[in-house]
């Protein structure tokens, strides 16, 4: 078990290294300079700045500095807000940055996973029933319509027209302020879980070993909870890792809609200010999360599926 985790971790390191290399070379090998066009700067100041950011060094040395900083958990400094550490922007001491995004994503996952699984299981158990058809239609609609459309429409309905929930703002980060954003994310990502669960349980219930369980005279309840639930959930787990990352990304889009002070605002500002270092940091951090979640999924697989153990 521990050996397995170590092995996977060792495999993840080169992946992360190459991602950093790709992103870093993209930023640093494209023509142009982050401080170009800042006309107000005197040549001396510009030179000092370039020195401060190691931009006067050859590419490989710059890369070495960057990797070295990354290994110490340091994303470097913002190009726009001179002297401002990116770590403080992404992980501020007060509520903001990544913490807002994480908070929103966690709330959403807490709804998405159980609701998606329960809906999927029920739809699969009562295949072709009215409930099943309802769930399937729901899945088709909300897997097609993105958060950036459902978000504003829900605001128009619940905040602007009926004044039930606030249209924007983070408040104290409680459920009252986060209800609409969480709803938006839940609607967008419940189908992902639900479709997989439904397909999976239908396949499992048609399998030979469930027929054997029926032939033994086991009740439906025992068949579902003892024999069917584990094989049903295994494909669901495989979508959980990529999904958590998509929820994070979706959360960033949703933050835009609801003006929440998370990574989304940070990304927009970085994009409009052409703050490459900040975008690069967010991209690399996102990749890091992606790899970590895929690792977690692999470990869960390992625990749940006896066939992987050797």
């Amino acid at each position: 078990m521990i050996l397995f985790i170590i092995k996977r971790l060792l495999l993840a390191i080169p992946t992360l290294f190459f991602i950093v290399l790709i992103v870093f070379s993209l930023v640093h090998l494209t023509p142009g300079d982050p401080f170009q066009g800042e006309k107000a700067m005197s040549p001396e100041v510009l030179k000092a700045l370039r020195h401060q950011y190691h931009l006067d060094l050859p590419f490989w040395q710059q890369f070495f500095y960057y990797i070295n900083n990354l290994m110490h958990g340091d994303f470097g400094q913002s190009y726009k807000f001179i002297g401002q550490s990116i770590n403080e922007l992404i992980f501020p001491d007060n509520m903001g940055g990544f913490w807002v995004t994480l908070n929103l994503s966690l709330y959403s996952m807490l709804i998405i996973i159980p609701v998606g699984i329960v809906l999927g299981v029920y739809a699969g158990l009562y295949k072709n029933s009215f409930l099943d058809k309802l769930v399937v239609t729901f899945n088709v609609i909300f897997s097609a319509v993105p958060t950036m459309v459902t978000g504003p429409l829900l605001v128009l309905l619940f905040a602007v027209t009926f004044h039930i929930f606030p249209a924007s703002g983070y408040g104290d980060g409680g459920l009252y302020n986060l209800f609409l954003p969480v709803m938006v994310l839940a609607l967008a990502y419940i189908p992902t879980i639900c479709v997989v669960t439904r397909g999976s349980i239908i396949e499992v219930l048609n399998s030979n070993y469930i027929r054997t369980a029926r032939a033994k005279g086991l009740s439906d309840r025992v068949i579902i909870f003892k024999h069917a639930i584990r094989p049903t959930l295994i494909p669901v787990i495989s979508v959980l890792g990529p999904m958590f990352v998509s929820v994070l990304v979706g959360a960033i889009v949703t933050e835009q809609v609801f003006a929440l002070p998370g990574l989304g605002i940070l990304t927009t500002n970085a994009a409009t200010n052409r703050d490459y270092n900040l975008i690069m940091a967010i991209t690399i951090f996102g990749s890091f999360l992606t790899i970590i979640f895929n690792l977690l999924v692999d470990i869960m697989y390992f625990v749940l599926d006896p066939r992987i153990k050797k």
């Binding site: 991602i19 992103v23 993209l26 494209t30 990304v249 975008i279 991209t283 996102g286 992606t290 895929n294």
Partner: peptide
């Protein structure tokens, strides 16, 4: 391809657009 899969698509395209 696996390595590129590790990069969240939205950030990557935002990065590309700001760069180019």
């Amino acid at each position: 391809v696996d390595i590129l899969y590790g990069i969240p698509f939205l950030f990557f395209s935002i990065l590309l657009i700001t760069l180019f």
